[in-house]
Design a protein around this nucleic acid. Structure first.
Lengths: 114, 114
DNA sequence: TCGCGGTGTGAAAGGGATGTGAAAAGGTCT
DNA sequence: AGACCTTTTCACATCCCTTTCACACCGCGA
């Protein structure tokens, strides 16, 4: 993965820039404020870009524990993350749902109507 | 079998790429969305490529149980799988029917009219 | 030609999975 | 304590997946 001048890993995907090292996200060069959990979810997904990640794996990566049955935490934070990303970058989609398994970070220009 | 950077088993057959490890299928490099059952059927077939697989074996591989007489589940999902594959890759055929036995994953360019 | 077994596939019912707003609980600062 | 923000949990609506049924088609044998 690309790294910044300070050596921090950085991911660029369209107008989105995720600086894992300093816990910063830029959308069109503008800072996108995320809460701790939101950033952790995003980071976990970005670190596994283009791979389908199970809810259990995401949960373990963020909460460091066993996910209880029917726990919806992951879904809730993915929803909030999507919401912020979409408001900042309306013409891009980043997180895809894989029903029955989990999510996949897969940036693409949104095909929806403008 | 070939493996990806993450060490996941990958099968390439013409323009089709099946990543068994991360539950992803690419058609001409583009993600092909499959449901759980569809992917399981495909995975079971790919794992037995070029072999004729009985309905019973496919059923056991996906549903983990004894197939009831006259159960059509396998047929239905093979049909849906074919449908999605054909829509994504019109000039290729992947699943052959062996009447009275089952199916066989055997990729080949389609000979149909253009 | 008729009947029959085998297969392809559309359609519908039902249920599980997901998106998401909102309340409850917890933390931090002053 | 009070204000404010975040995390957690709950509840509900919606979506879409699975399952099952039914019908059509095909090839074959009587």
């Amino acid at each position: 993965m690309e790294t910044s001048q300070q050596g921090d890993p950085v991911l660029r995907a369209g107008p989105l820039e995720v600086r894992l090292g300093d816990r910063t996200v830029l959308a069109d060069q503008r800072p996108l404020p995320l809460t701790v959990r939101e950033f952790q979810i995003l980071a976990a997904l970005v670190n596994r870009a283009e791979r389908v990640v199970s809810r259990e794996e995401l949960y373990a990566a963020v909460w460091h524990g066993e996910m209880r049955d029917h726990d919806r935490s992951v879904d809730v934070y993915v929803s909030r993350l999507r919401s912020k990303l979409e408001r900042a970058l309306p013409h891009w989609a980043y997180i895809r749902t894989h029903i029955g398994f989990g999510y996949c970070f897969s940036p693409r220009p949104s095909t929806g109507e403008w």
